[in-house]
Structures are given as structure tokens and as C-alpha cells.
Design a binder for these strands. Sequence first.
DNA 1: ATGAAAGCGCTAACAC
DNA 2: GTGTTAGCGCTTTCAT
Lengths: 380, 380
Amino acid sequence: MSGAEKNRKKSTIHPTVNVRSKSSHPRRRAGHASIRDVAAKAGVSIATVSRAVNGIPTVDPELARRVWKAVEEVGYLPNTQARALVSGRSRMLGLIVSEITNPFFPELVQEFENLAVAQGYEVLIGSTSYDPLRTESLIRRMLQRNVDGVAVMTFGIEEDLVQKLVDRGFPLVFVDAGPQLENIRVLKVNYGEGIRQAVQHLAALGHREIGFISGPLRLRSAVARRDAFLKAMRELGLKIPKQHLVEGGHTMEGGIAAMEQLAALSALPTAVLCSNDMSAIGALHALYRTTHKVPDDVSIVGFDDIHLAQFMLPPLTTVQMSCKELAVAAVDALRAGIEPNHPKARQMEWQIDTRLVVRQSTAFPRGTLPAVVKRAAAKR
Amino acid sequence: MSGAEKNRKKSTIHPTVNVRSKSSHPRRRAGHASIRDVAAKAGVSIATVSRAVNGIPTVDPELARRVWKAVEEVGYLPNTQARALVSGRSRMLGLIVSEITNPFFPELVQEFENLAVAQGYEVLIGSTSYDPLRTESLIRRMLQRNVDGVAVMTFGIEEDLVQKLVDRGFPLVFVDAGPQLENIRVLKVNYGEGIRQAVQHLAALGHREIGFISGPLRLRSAVARRDAFLKAMRELGLKIPKQHLVEGGHTMEGGIAAMEQLAALSALPTAVLCSNDMSAIGALHALYRTTHKVPDDVSIVGFDDIHLAQFMLPPLTTVQMSCKELAVAAVDALRAGIEPNHPKARQMEWQIDTRLVVRQSTAFPRGTLPAVVKRAAAKR
DNA sequence: ATGAAAGCGCTAACAC
DNA sequence: GTGTTAGCGCTTTCAT
């Protein structure tokens, strides 16, 4: 109970008692107890308070008790900013998504946040609206806030900035990051698997004319989904006329526009696969407006399996990409990059699977009945 | 170009040149340029750098130029944590919502974030999942992160904590905060207006049996909406049998369950008002499963007007509560509480209006045709 | 085991 | 107008 008062100002030669407590410093944060208040109350040094609060085992149990009591009494909350300043680590993670209003992302955000918080991290969220400029300013702001790492769940960012960060050794996690960039951890989504299942499901029902509503093609992930579709079709020997391939922008509006384009064709495909669920919902809506029935007239398949999908009318058949899985991988990858002794510190790739979920927006092509049904009908 | 080196360690008596630049301190943040690096590069003191960077007009233009050049060269980003530490303000706002996966909230979050960022604030987002414990830990975490204020867009929080914060003078903004708490800024939503419009719209169409699917009744806002409905019905002299009032929990699942309950009644109401759009979507789904047609068999009205509402099948008639308006008010109210010289520093209430948006989920009650239609039919 | 003191990066009061 | 310096709240040597 001696030196603590020296930490303050030049001031009087005789720092008698608790002058510190309500501070001489004008900028002192109002109404907030600091470590010094606790130290004074407990009659120990601030170092001991720090140690007690951080659970360092070498503190005398009796002193620890006194410290905790004082903490209680003054309502002390350690100031994370100060901690971050001295430790050089903020225990904040950045999470950048393309469009927070696309329901897939809130689901992702929630999972990510739960995991992060459980592991002692806070999350700074940013939504880019597909704007590279926004993405850049977002990353810049997050860096200023000293986040320990950033997970970018979208693409369209200036490579320069990424390169600079990578050079600096800043932990970065991308989904579907394409190119040669080293030292970036990447979540590789296996689009092929789920999309092949979807195409095969449609083909098995008898569909041969299958259209595709893609996402915005400057997004790597959108391109990857389209390519997976093309590949699956080719594997089955199915043709894709150019006009059956339309861009939908991953929004409901985009889905509507794309479906209208398809519907204007002389021969509307009997089934349409969409690059995400929002486009699929848009497609559903467009078909409703043009009085086409789903799935009787045309089958629709989505991608993502957002919560909403099962509540659509009709419930949407879709390719599931688990945002839980994505979140787990993202947090894991981030920590691998941040914490020097992380068991996966050297791992650079995380695999994410996708799979088909069959609901009621897919059925036999219009005007056809499969053999089994015909046989059943004949029996009557 | 002299004293800056003194800031470091005891060390050598002769701090010849740029020993500081890559630091002697072991905890120095790796790869990140600090204000001292800029000062060294520009040949000025750190104070000048600080002033230049913060746009203080009294700096010599020539020096300012040199500073900015150095900033460019070393890739300097001011450390927000340090700034926050010294200024006692973090320029971070907390935003607490009840359920990030309810599409209304991402829309709100996005608006809020855009506004906040434009005004130089960062946003820390938290989702409570209606859990008071989570809410409390959320607020606690936000306080540790030194947020300048918190907007709570949900209710169910322990009053103790709120009281403590209020006593401390901590800026807090609530939506629909009910009780006597002083020094809390509140966003008063005028549910009555929009809901009265909805009930009158239904009544005008000829509905007399109008059901209501409420939200979770521990939420003030849910109670307020139900009460507004009851009041509007009373004003029109319409009766509400108890079984026409069911709780839906503000989720799709809840909406489905509630609608099923209603559908199981001997006399299903001809119209149902829902406490939010998600319940309404659930109701739509439940009616689809029970092969009731909307709006032919029963009219449905939602609340919130989320983006999705217009894309439902059929497009949802709903009471609009503009999240843009809410966000604007929330940020405004927060800043009023934070900034001592804010023009509205003394204002404690913000009004938010609601209004009906008519789409296609409402129509005449089943089995009825209004006079005009009958006359038109008779003419043929 | 405990305390003193340095210092994280920055701002602002003060001196010149 | 510019530099020096104290200090924001905290962690972490280094002595004791």
C-alpha cells in the first residue's frame, strides 16, 4: 500500500492517502472503476490485482480474496482496450460478409459469433454489399481496431491490400480464394458434390432441359457453383443451350429477373437450379406471377439451405452448405493463424462439404409420368 | 528531430539515430507502423504527426505534407485502441438485437451500421436469442470494450444492470422501454397507427372474425402490438373470442404452430393479423399445408415489412415499421447521449411511425362478395 | 509472493 | 507553430 500513488502526476511531495481514487487526470473515464481503485480498496499493488484477476496461480489466496472482494465492491471491469494495447492482441476477430441482408449470412454470423465468444473472442462484423471499395475500407477499419485476424466470406477485394496484409503476416481466412496467394488460409467448399447430387436427382426424375440461374460472376464462389453445374451436366451427357444459363445476382430481384428471362423462352427448361436460395425464392415468385406451377410445370432447386427454404411454398429442394460447418472452420482457421502454438498452425486448407436436401419443389417434368406411376395408375 | 528517442527504455546514453524505429520493446506490435515511425521518417515530433493526422489547422503546411508522405510510406494506421484509451471514448456503439436470424434485424443492422460508420463510429453487434443472461453478458462485454453507448432493440434485460448503467450516466437507448426509468432515451414506436389501419382495412373488406398471432409476450414490443390490435378491434366494436388470440413467438415455427391452432378451431377466423412478418410467413405455410387458400379462404396481415414480404406467395399485406427510420433515430439518440454538445442532448424520446402496406394476402372474406362486385356481376 | 516501474500508441496541456 | 511530457489502464519484467 505504498507506491501506487507515485504513478500519478508530479504533484505534492506527500501523497498521503487515496488521492488517486477519483483522479487528478482530467481525461479520466467517468464512472468507471480502474485497476487502481481496486488496488486501493484491497490494499495491494496494481500488479497484484492484475495477477489475481488474470488467475495467475502464484498470488497469495488471502490477497486474491481481498482483490476479488474489492473487484465486486467497485464493480471493476478490466478495460479491454488497455489490455489490447499492452499485449498487442485485441482478441477481436473480423468477419466480412457480402450482404448481411441475405439470410444465409446472419445464420453464419450467429454461428461464428457463438463460437468466437465461447473461445474468448469478440467479433467485428462488416457487410460489403459486393463493393470492393467498401471491403477495403472495412478491412482498414478493422485493422485500426486491431483485430487479430479477418475472415472474408466474400470476394472482390483489391489484391494489393491482401498482399500487403499477407506480407505483414496478418492472419487472413478466405472462402474459395482462388489464386496463388500464399499464407492465406482458405475454406474450400466442395460445390461439386452437392451440385452433382442435385443434377443427378433432377436427371433421375426425367429432366433433360435444366437451366441455371447463376450468382454475380465476379464472385469466385458464384463462378465455382456455375462450373460445378456445367461439369455435372457434362458428366451426364446433357446439353446446356446458352440461353438456359442466366445471371441472377444472388438476390430475390435477380432471381425474378432471371426466371422471367427463362420463362420468355420458347421452350422453358423443365427444371432450374439456382446458385443460392434467394434467387430460388425469386424464381418461385416469378413463376407464380406467370402462373406456372412449382413443381408441376417446373422444378426448382436452390443452394445454401437457409432456414427459410423449408418454409417456402412449396418447400424448397436445395443444396445444403452448412453455415455451422463454415463457422467452425473459419474460427478454427483464424485461431490457427493467430495463436503461435495452435495445433493446426501449419494447416492452410479446410474442406467444407455440400449435400442435396430433397423437399417439394422438384418433381417429374411436366407432361410426363414415370413408369411406376403409370403402372400404379393402370392397376385401378 | 530530437526528443523522440528519449521515450524509449533506459538504454544507452547516446541515442544516436533511428534505434527506435524497430523498437527495443519486446511486446511491440509486429509489422505495424506507429506514430513514432512516422515522426522519425518525417523528421518531426510525434505531437506534430498527431496534429497533422487529426487535421489540426495550426500545423505548418510544409510539415503536414512531410507527415502525410511519411504516413503513406510506412503505411501508418492510427491505433484506435490507443486513441480510445487516452480520449476515454472508443467511438464504438453497441447494437443489441433479439435475433439476428430474423430478417428484420439484419436490415436494421445494415442501416444502423451505415449511419454509424458515416458518422465515424464502429458498431459492435450482439444477438440475445431472447435470453436475459446473454443480454447481460453481452452488455458487460460491450462495456469492457468501452463502447460509448448501447442501443437495445429488444427487451428482457435485468433491470439491475440497466439501473447501474443509468446511474453511471452511461448512454442507453431502448425501443419501447416501458417503465419509469429515467435517463434512458427511448424510441417510441407508434404501433397503434399502423395496426389500426390494418384492422380497418380488414373490416372494410368485410371481415368481422379477425384472429391475432402475437409475439412472445415477455417482450414489451409484442405486448404493445397485441394491445394495439385489441384497442383497434374495440374501437370498431368487434369481438375477439379468447381462442382467436394465440402466441406465435415471432418465428416461422411459432407462426405455423399458432396458425395450426387457429385452423383446428370449429370456426377459423376469416382474417389473421400477425405480430411480425416471420409469423405471417409461418401462417402462410401452415395454411398451405392444410390446403387453405390465401387470401381466398383467409386473409393474412404481417408486421415489419421485411424485404422478403413482397416476395411471398402471395405478396404479404403488412404493417410497415421502417428500419431505416429506427436506425436513424437510434444513432441520433445514442449520439445525443454521448456527445455533450449534441443539439438534442436533452431529448429523451424519439417517435417512430408505422403504416399499412396493402399487397395481395388480404381480400374479401370467404363466401362473400361486396356490393360493388355483385352489381358488376349482375350487369353481365 | 509482491511491489516498483517501464511502456503499449496515442492525445493534450504546457512550454517555448 | 512545434516539441516535450504526462498519463489513459493495463501487463510484465525485474528486484526484493
